[in-house]
Amino acid sequence: MPEEQHPPHGDRKKPSLPEDALPELTEADATRMLSLAISGPLRPVDDLIERLSRPDGAKWLSRVLSAGPTAAFGAAREQIADGKASLEQLRAIKQTSKSLLQNSKDPQSRLTAMVSYFFPVAAALTHYDESICSRPREELETVLLDLAAVTDEPWSSMFSTAALSGEDAQG
């Protein structure tokens, strides 16, 4: 091993970060952090996450929610975010989204279908603690947290609550 294995900490004479902002990194720390950056195979939902994370993502979402299957039973905010839609209604929206997805021929309709899929799925978990899709729990949690990170309120809270519902919030 080298004589001195201290990792870099910016300019030693004038640290570029406050001590409480970023402590020194060991190789074990670097290993843990490197694994965070592996993206894995591209998921279809990544297109939706990318669209939502654009500067006009909130406006776009608002348009989709007011015109797509999510508006079938009334205003999306009340029905989905506030929990007024019944579990059966949420299932119905999700089912509609599946056929929409199968028949979609352009990126915009695929994105609309994904909104209509994941929003009721999250609402069912948040308001009824019920999973209405067959995706593995771990995979679903990751997707829901990703969606929570790129949406504004009230959607962000709905997705994050759904992601950690029924769990001990360990991860």
């Binding site: 990792p7 900490h9 910016g10 990194l25 190789e27 720390d29 670097a30 952090m33 490197l34 950056a37």
Partner: peptide, 12 residues
């Protein structure tokens, strides 16, 4: 060392 350095830089 490179691995640690780029993690550090990305964190900064």
């Amino acid at each position: 060392a490179f691995a640690v350095a780029i993690v550090r830089q990305a964190m900064e």
